[in-house]
Each structure stands twice: as structure tokens, then as C-alpha cells.
Write a protein that binds this DNA or RNA. Structure first.
Lengths: 226, 226, 226, 226
DNA sequence: CATGAATGAGCCTTCATTCAT
DNA sequence: AATGAATGAAGGCTCATTCAT
């Protein structure tokens, strides 16, 4: 049985030509999904846009959902890779430096593929039953959780899971909403600064321990509070 | 003028029987939309579920979009009414009292109609081109903006529009995400407290005025930071 | 059994108010039929346009076809009445005078109700199975046949039925086509003159009888041939 | 350019099997349109009659109008081709020979596809907004106009456009009406002779030029006037 | 008489998917 | 590997007509 259990792939391309076909389909699908949305994008139209027959499309992807999943997987893993790289560079930085940098990074990624990025967000309600986005979201959670776990002495929240939940969903929603409703916020200085205030204000200073006023952690906040 | 410009209504019911039909349709539509999503819900199925003929459905609602709009309008305006009433009661309260109360109120509304509430959120990308949700969102913005405008001396942000944007989208997204991914957060004490920290931390103390350290405004935060 | 066998009427209005309702329906139907055509005109829309409930419409007309038939009947009988009156006035006139006058009259009627007139023509293929238009057409045939029968010594054709068939269909088609494609022809002097040439040329001089060259009959043609 | 601008075709069949499908659809459509008329013919019924699935129908024709247009185009262009060929053969013939021959030809074509021929006529009001019939009619006008333009010295009318308008519409209407109301006229000797009288009488002798009585042109008329 | 709520068959069309070539 | 012809369930929606009020 040559069928892989993946819901997004049917057959691995063996020849170079086949790989090109796969890519063309993926690219066409991304373009149409971004332009028309999930329901308005038909597999026949994708094949046509890709310059490929509908039969070929179904040779590599088991069904429409699988194809869309593949699109999101590709974009999601690229996004996570870049995001992870950014986090790694900040492994040693204090929160007051890391958070602004991360936010800056996220907004930059948003500006890079504004629509593909929104696509994942818009497809959340459609594809949740398929279990893909969970993968992306879970990875993102894991990365952010690890990041915070390494800074337990710099932050206030003790329930890490909840803090990650709050931070991830907040930033995702605000970036998405900005892209949709206020594109000017994406190329604006004030917006990222406000996001930093929001996140740093939330992560806050760690609970004061006896005799150790958390002066260092609190200091950076002034930058945004003035 | 026999034609109403409303995109969500076609004809006003004149008889009591007709009103009952309208309501049955609306109720059935809400139930199916919540269960299956916009695209997977067919008007024929709605009519069947409502126990009326498809013709009756189209006598009162001009098309599928109009019907969905009517569902959201009904729920949205009820939600806004209740929210507005809650805000009015807090008109004189200081931020440190009002914000926790508001967040508590929002979560209570969420628990009341968890799915209908999510429906609006999930349909945002589908219905945006129809211009309804803007109405809801605009009203919400207006209410929150007025609330903050009356407390300019208690808060830090000077760009009110951006602050409203951030607070509204953040709370919406977190409540929605909680309802979907972590229902336990909705009936949990820690979650609302964290939301308060997030919002109050963001709104922060007002910019210090000459010689008047904003000690009083900062004080209430202890309640949530311990 | 109060139902009349007429396919276009269900019930005779007894009260004045009812007569007004009937007329409003007929008027609205005529307007919409002219504007949108038979298939695109719905009985519900007619009732709405007439300011009457759909139930009232079906109280006076048995179905859509019956209503349309009534519209055509009304217009057709008015048309025939006027046409007949015109013919009567020309009872004594020689062909060379009568034909131009008749053609002038037909074009005047056409200009009077250009669309209603076309409506009958356009509905021919739709309503033929209902047997109405035959009535109109038959009456028209009878009138024209009587007109020609009284002038057998002035005309060439011996098969009167065929001559009537040719003249009636020719003039109907040309007037209709002019109304649709070349409205300028309707208010033009050359067009009716050409129609006269066509008809008079066809009816032509009577077959020459021994020793009696048909000079007189031919003479009038000069008027139109110059 | 994968999208053809034609309103009557969607996709060209590449395989032989597909061509057979196309033809079956066209044939079935023609049969049902002739039998039931435009509005009473449904695309589902056509597909069923053609023995193909409704999906196949819409793979080759963009919509109902397009399909009907294709039917008419096919028949119309065949008709025009044959008519044109007939005209060419008569290029050198005098009017008195050409006109009877043309009328004979038209009636023969009418007898060949009596219903398809009527179909176009009946669909005129339905399809006019789609711009097809104009094409047919325009071509017919052009052919007839060229025919007359080559015989300016044999005919009376100086306004060629109006003469063409009159002749074309007259013959169309009479042939159609004969097919519908008097099929016996189509296989009758008297009818075509009367049509010749009508047309030749209208085209008439050319305006007399100084001292040249148009005896030759008038002579042939005797044939039909006796 | 008049109203208008209710009906439901049926229309046009789309689209994910299969399979013979 | 690739093609593209074929499928048919299903969707949104209309409209002539009936009947309880």
C-alpha cells in the first residue's frame, strides 16, 4: 500500500517533472485561496491556474482539504522556521529587548506574506476539524512556552500555559486585524510600541521576592510608558 | 416605497402566524450555522429544520446572506444592549473597578450564548463583504471609545483609536479562543484575572504630571498581581 | 356554478370597487408584460404593482395565462374597433385612396401603443396554444377579407384567403419590425409610401378583361412610384 | 487565453468522445426547443434527452442561453451558407428569373427544417438581448443588399436599406406564418407565385428614364399576373 | 370581498471526484 | 505520469397557486 497516512499527500513525486507539477499546484492553490477564499476556490480552477489537468491534481493530493492543508503546511512551516530562528537569536536577550524584537519580527513576517498569513487565520474555522492548524498552533505554543520558561525569573505569570495562550492569541489576533482593518498600523511605529507595552505590561515584573526589589525588570517599561 | 433597502429582510410579517414563522427560521438558522458553519448550512436544510417550506424562508429573507445577517443582527444587537447597560452602570467607577467588572460581564455573556457568540467571529471573513459585522464592530468601538474618553486622566495611551482597537480585538480574540480551545478558562478565576492584568497593564497609569506620582492609579493593580 | 367558461375571466366584478381592482390589475399586468416579457412577469409582482393582494388577482383571473389573455383581449378589441371604424369610413373609396389611408391608420395605432401592440406579436408563440390570438387574427382576417371582397373588380388576386393572409401578415410583420428595429420608420414619410407600393403592387390591377385595358386602376400607382 | 469570449461555447472538445457528447446535446436541445419553446425547456431535461449528465452539458456550454445560441448559430450558419450559394448561382440572372428562384429556394429550406427555422423566429424576442440573432439578420441583410445593389437599374426603390428591410421581413414573416398556420401553402404552387408578385411588384420597374419605357422589366410580370 | 401566509416542484448551475485513455 | 471527459448530488432561489383568516 503506497498510500501514506498523511491527509495532505497522496503520492510522493519521484521525477523532477512531477515535483514541478506539485509546486505549480501548490502555488496556484495559494494564489486562488488568498484571492477567493476556501469555498469559492474549486479544485478544477486550481488545476487550470496551475496549467495542469485535474487528474494530475488528484494524483498528488487526496482531496481539496488535503491540498489546502499542504498549502498551509508549507507556509506554516516556513513561518515557524523563520520565527524559531528569530527566537534563537534572542535566547540570551532580556525580555525588554527580546519582546520588541519579536514583535518587530512578527510584523515583518506579516508584511511579507500578508494574505497567506491571513489565510491560515481565516481557514481556522473551516479546517479545525482536520487537525492541521493544531499542529501549527501547537508548535507555536511550544516555542513560545520554551521562550518564557527560560525567563521565569523575569516574568510575573506563574501559569505558563495560560500566559502563552494569552500572548499568542493576542498577537495573532492583533496582527491579523491590523492587516485586515488597519493596514497603516503595520507600517507604523506607534503600533508595535503599543504591542510591546501590552505584552511587557502583562508579563510584568516577577513577583517581588523578599529583599529583592525587581528594579531591573521594571526599568524597561519606562521606555514605553512615557 | 415597498422595497426596503435592508439586505437582511424582504418583507415584514403582518400576521402573528408569520412572525412565528420568521422566528422559527431564525432559530433553526442559528442552530445549524453554529453546528455546521456557513457554507455547510443550506437554506433548504434550514427551512426543513424550521418546519416551514423553502418558499416561506425566501418570503422573509432575500437570500442566504440576508438570513445569516438577520441571525447575527439579532444576536449582535442583544449583546450590545446588554454590554451597553453594563457599561452605563460603571460610568462612575474607577478603571480598577470597571475593567474587572467589564471583563467579568463579557465572559458571562460568552458563557450565555457560547456558540452564537463564536458564530459572529467565525463569519467575519465570510460576511465582511456584506457590511454587517462592521456595524457591530463599529458600535462596539464607539462604546469602548466613549468609555475610555471619559477616563483620559486615568490612562496612558494618547491615541485613543489605537487603544480601542487593541483592547477590543484582544478581548474578542481571547474570549473566542477560550470558548473554542479552552472552555475551562471560561469558568475559571485565573483567566479573568489575567485578562485584567493584560488590559490594566496596557492602559497603564496616566503619564506622570509634574510632581504628582500616579500612585493611586497604580495601587489597584496589586489586587491582580499577587 | 358561477364560473364562466372563458379562459380569461373567473368571476365578474359586481361592485364598483371590484371593477377598479380588476382594472388596476389589468393595467399593472400590461405595464409589466411590456417591460419584462411574459416569462419574466410574475403574478405576485403584478399584484404588488397593482397595489392589490395576490389573492384578489386570482379571484378575478383563473391563472397567469388567463390574465395575459385578458390584457390582450382588451387591447385587441380596442384595436379592432378602431380599425373597423377606419375601414367603414373608407367603404366607398377606391383602393388607391383606401390603402394609403389604412396604412396610415395602422401606423398611427402602432405609434399610439407601440409596446402593447408588440406584446401581442411577441406573445404569439407563447399563447397560441390558448387560442386567444386566433380570435384577434380571425377577426382581422374577416374584416380585411370583407374589405377586399367588396373590391373584387379592382384587384388581381382571385384566391381571396391567400391574399388576405399575405397582406395581413406582411403589414403586421413590417409594422412590428419597424417598431423594434427602426423606430424612425414609424415617423417617416417614405416608409408608409413604400408599404403602399408593396400592397397596391400586390393587389395590382384586375385581370384585363377583353378590350378593357385596366388603365384607371394602374394610374394611381404613379403617386407612389415617383 | 484559456477563456473564449464566445457566449455560446465554454470549452472545445479535444477527444472524439467529447465531440459526440456536444453533438448529442445540440441535437437534443434543438428537438426540445422546437417542441416546448425556450422557457419550457430545461437544461436538465436537455441533458437527459441527450443521454448525458447535466455536468457534461455545462462543461461545453456556459449556460442555457449559450446552448440555445449554439443551436441557432449552427442552424443559422447552415441556412445562410445555402442561401448564399443559391444567390451566387443567380448572380447573372435578371430579376424576373432570380426572384422566383430565390423564393422557391427559401420555401425549400423552410420545408427542410420547418421547426428549426421557426425556432429562430420564435426566439427573436427572447434572445435579442443576447445579440445572436442580430448576427444572422445582419448577414441576411448584407446578402440581400448586395444582391439588390447589383441590380439598381432593374429596380424602382432608391432607398436600398428600406427596400431590404421590407423584403426580408416580409418574406420571413410570410414563410413563418405559412409554416405555422397554413402548411399547405408551403407545398402549393400558388403561394410562391403570389410571393413573386408581391416582391416583383414592390421592386417594380426602375424609374422611367427619358424616352426609355421600361418594357423589358415589366414583361416578366405577366407570367405571374395571368 | 380581500388579505397575505404558505407551499413545493422545479429551475439553473457548480464542483469535488473518478476513470478510461 | 498525465489527460480531460464524465458524473450527479446538491445548492440557492423563483413563482404560480391555494386557503385560512
Amino acid at each position: 500500500m503506497p498510500r501514506s497516512p498523511s491527509p495532505s499527500r497522496r503520492k510522493q513525486p519521484r521525477q523532477q517533472r512531477a515535483q514541478a507539477t506539485c509546486d505549480a499546484i501548490l502555488t496556484a492553490a495559494a494564489r486562488l485561496l488568498v484571492r477567493d477564499g476556501y469555498e469559492a476556490t474549486s479544485t478544477n480552477r486550481i488545476a487550470e491556474e496551475a496549467g495542469v489537468s485535474i487528474g494530475s491534481l488528484y494524483q498528488y493530493y487526496p482531496n481539496k482539504e488535503g491540498l489546502v492543508l499542504a498549502v498551509l503546511e508549507q507556509h506554516g512551516s516556513r513561518w515557524l522556521t523563520e520565527f524559531d530562528a528569530g527566537l534563537k537569536e534572542l535566547a540570551q536577550a532580556p525580555l525588554s529587548v527580546a519582546v520588541p524584537s519579536i514583535i518587530h519580527h512578527i510584523l515583518a513576517l506579516k508584511r511579507l506574506h500578508p494574505q497567506l498569513d491571513s489565510l491560515r487565520y481565516a481557514l481556522l474555522p473551516v479546517l479545525r476539524p482536520l487537525g492541521h492548524v493544531d499542529t501549527f498552533e501547537q508548535q507555536l505554543f511550544r516555542l513560545v512556552r520554551a521562550f518564557l520558561a527560560a525567563r521565569l525569573d523575569e516574568i510575573r505569570p506563574r501559569e505558563l500555559d495560560m500566559a502563552v495562550f494569552i500572548i499568542v492569541h493576542t498577537l495573532e489576533a492583533l496582527c491579523h486585524a491590523a492587516g485586515v482593518d488597519r493596514p497603516d498600523y503595520l507600517t507604523n511605529d506607534a503600533f508595535p510600541e503599543e504591542l510591546c507595552v501590552l505584552v511587557l505590561g502583562y508579563l510584568g515584573p516577577p513577583p517581588a521576592r523578599l529583599g529583592h526589589p525587581p528594579r531591573k525588570a521594571a526599568a524597561p517599561r519606562r521606555k514605553y510608558e512615557q
